[in-house]
Design a protein around this nucleic acid. Structure first.
Lengths: 241, 241
DNA sequence: CAGCGTAAATTGTTATGACCAATTCAAGGG
DNA sequence: CCCTTGAATTGGTCATAACAATTTACGCTG
């Protein structure tokens, strides 16, 4: 018969999420602040501790809360960020390709670069320049180079002045970086990548949005090729074993 | 003293997520399939039911699983989608503005429109055309118009051929649409919005990527203005009460 | 034999209570 | 004054039970 699915899975958990969030707003808790202990919170909301924990667990996996045993449960501090895990799982389950993810990353970061050219502050420009300098210093150390590569792109996203956009950039890029950290081993032509980073920076520095977009687009296309090459090499290496 | 935070919150839950995911892959479960019952699964993984449930709860809140009391726990079927709730909470906690969200939506959808112009299939073009026809039919019914507005944009995102991108578009747009559903009440100049939709469609239909991007950009700028106007009217209405 | 309703089995949901492990903090000793 | 040590606090895990919704199977009725 297969009637339509009710889909009302665990009203309680959702309710807890909503009520805890209400509490956060009402008590005016800021990132980094501590929530009341679980036992007390459960009593306040009139539910059992396991039920409360289900809700908190949900908020933790959404990246809103973070808990440390013995210390308490806290609102996450630091820059706003979404966990990449959901996107990664979704991608694997449905077989999204890395090419699609690079394409998405390109759209996001090209947009971010354009906005950064219009809005970047002096501090943000300085951060970008510093990361480029660090990349120069790490030309012989792939892992270290990658770290500053990430930091540079994060700085550009931040300089877009749009936290929503920066959050999405971070979410998508994290998946690609994590994958790349395992395959980068051998050093390629980092000089080319570095030169493209500098081109992006110069365009942002000179407030040339169109050039910044074009430079970022070019850079990510090259990065995608390098990534594909590394994947291929890794595959061949595994087959040899 | 404030040593660095270990941040190792609940290794068990994360481990459960990983192991359940492994199981999904190993058993080759497809979207819509059912997982083993909790009692059995807990025994398989050698953990207690509450611990297992914490992990499942996490996967549910990530949108990977879905459970129905008495029936079982299933892999979600339907098109891949990320829950908008995490982004919404993050936005509220950090005070992201709607302008930023529109800007992000513009970047995503402009990119999607460009790709759709290059890749849309006949079926996808037909879906877009149908939704435009439905908008014509719903010119006097704001809520209904909005439904087909959403469907049109979803069709464009889908026609981009990039499921990652489509997923992000959906996630961001859902927040804006949900907000708008509450403020749209009075009908404005839907003719203008409809005309812009048609312009987007014609550009995609004729495989003109640049024009499709420009049309989508223009459309979303106007939508943003309409949104801001509705928000303002709603604010004034509330003050009057 | 076919159709249908009811009861039993299955399965997720919530609750209670207890104990463990990590952290925090204050009292006491050097 | 600083360090150590212990108790109190707090999150993490577990075992068990009762509950609710759905599914399945059996038996009754026509």
């Amino acid at each position: 018969m297969q009637i339509i699915q009710p889909v009302r899975s665990s009203q309680n958990t959702e309710q807890v999420v909503a009520r805890v969030y209400e509490l956060i707003k009402r008590a005016d808790l800021k990132p980094g602040d501590r929530l009341p202990p679980e036992r007390e919170l459960a009593k306040q909301l009139g539910i059992s501790r396991p039920s409360l924990r289900a809700g908190l667990s949900s908020l933790i996996s959404m990246g809103v809360l973070q808990s440390r045993q013995g210390a308490g449960t806290f609102l996450v501090d630091g820059p706003p960020a979404l966990d990449s895990e959901p996107l990664r799982l979704l991608a694997e389950l449905h077989g999204f390709s890395y090419d699609h993810m690079f394409e998405t990353r390109s759209i996001l970061e090209v947009g971010a670069a354009g906005l950064a050219a219009e809005r970047a502050t002096g501090d943000q420009l300085a951060t970008m320049a510093e990361e480029i300098a660090e990349m120069f210093a790490a030309l012989k150390d792939p892992q270290q180079f990658l770290v500053h590569d990430i930091a540079f792109h994060r700085a550009v996203a931040s300089a877009s002045g749009n936290p929503t956009l920066a959050t999405l950039v971070e979410m998508v890029s994290a998946i690609l970086y994590e994958r790349r950290r395992d395959t980068i081993e051998r050093a390629h032509d980092f000089n080319e990548a570095l030169e493209l980073h500098r081109r992006v920076y110069r365009a942002i520095r000179s407030r040339n949005a169109e050039e910044a977009r074009e430079a970022m687009r070019e850079h990510i296309v090259r990065a995608q090729r390098a990534f594909a090459l590394e994947e291929k090499q890794q595959l061949e290496r595994q087959q040899k074993d």
